[in-house]
């Protein structure tokens, strides 16, 4: 049996020291006496050594600043409603619950049909109420984002500095909530909403990390980015979709209430 060549998988396990003692002894003995396996093993070693030089992704110069801008609102030293959320188990549980609720709202928005919820059972009602509240929250988030985008796009060069200071603060407030909505949309497979919120988040993070005095050309670059990605248009479309869901939801609830 010792004359049988080692398999490719045996060589991998040997390389990582994952063979049991008996197999390990066998592999070592075989490798020392078999040129073919020895060559194959040497080749594997070279390949795995080359993997060590796996390329690192290129990061922008301002990467650290961007990370901090994204992180800071979520820390207790930050401002806004997240300040008290993050630091105790109870608060964390609250965040988790919100995530689940948001995910539920996205999911419900994707799968419910008006006629499907006429059962009027108490459980369905509470789900519907919860979904309605969360659709309102998401709608408000998109409205606030839309307002910010409109003001950025329409800012005159002379007002740019004042606008940036205002929008920077606003972006900082929006970024944490945006992230929660994006994660929920991703988890529920709502690709369109998830992609939009991802694009929006990148802009929010960049804005909240920007200096107080944004040069005119940088401001123009922000405007061009919004225009190039049709961000404002997309926010309007999704916002409109959310409003539609809210309407459907209201009608469904009304129907359910009347039939029960």
């Amino acid at each position: 049996m010792t004359n049988l060549h080692l398999t490719e998988d045996d060589l991998v396990l040997h390389y990582y020291g994952e063979l049991d003692t008996a197999s390990e002894n066998h592999a070592a003995t075989h490798l020392s006496g078999c040129d073919e396996c020895h060559r194959a093993y040497a080749q594997l070693q070279r390949v795995l050594a080359a993997v060590e030089s796996v390329p690192a992704p290129a990061l922008s110069d301002g990467f650290e600043r961007t990370v901090w801008a994204r992180l800071e609102p979520a820390l207790p030293a930050g401002r806004g409603w997240l300040r008290w959320l993050v630091f105790s188990p109870a608060n964390l549980a609250w965040v988790s619950a919100i995530l689940v609720l948001i995910a539920g709202a996205f999911y419900a928005g994707r799968v419910t049909r008006p006629a499907a919820s006429v059962s009027g059972s108490p459980i369905a009602s509470s789900e519907q109420i919860r979904e309605g509240v969360l659709l309102v929250d998401l709608g408000e988030h998109l409205d606030r984002s839309q307002t910010m985008l409109v003001e950025l796009v329409s800012a005159e060069p002379d007002d740019a500095t004042a606008h940036v200071a205002i929008e920077r603060a606003r972006a900082g407030e929006l970024v944490a909530a945006n992230r929660l909505y994006r994660q929920a949309a991703t988890q529920t497979g709502d690709v369109a909403v998830s992609e939009l919120l991802d694009e929006l988040e990148r802009l929010l993070v960049e804005l909240s990390a920007s200096p107080d005095q944004l040069p005119t050309e940088d401001m123009e670059r922000v405007k061009q980015r919004i225009a190039a990605k049709d961000l404002l248009f997309k926010v309007r479309v999704v916002s409109s979709g959310v409003r539609e869901r809210q309407k459907q939801h209201s009608l469904t609830r009304t129907g359910a209430g009347q039939s029960s």
């Binding site: 991998v12 594997l44 080359a50």
Partner: peptide, 12 residues
């Protein structure tokens, strides 16, 4: 590992 080998063996 097989995928890494396929990609890198010609080079190493």
């Amino acid at each position: 590992v097989r995928k890494m080998r396929a990609a890198l063996e010609p080079f190493v």
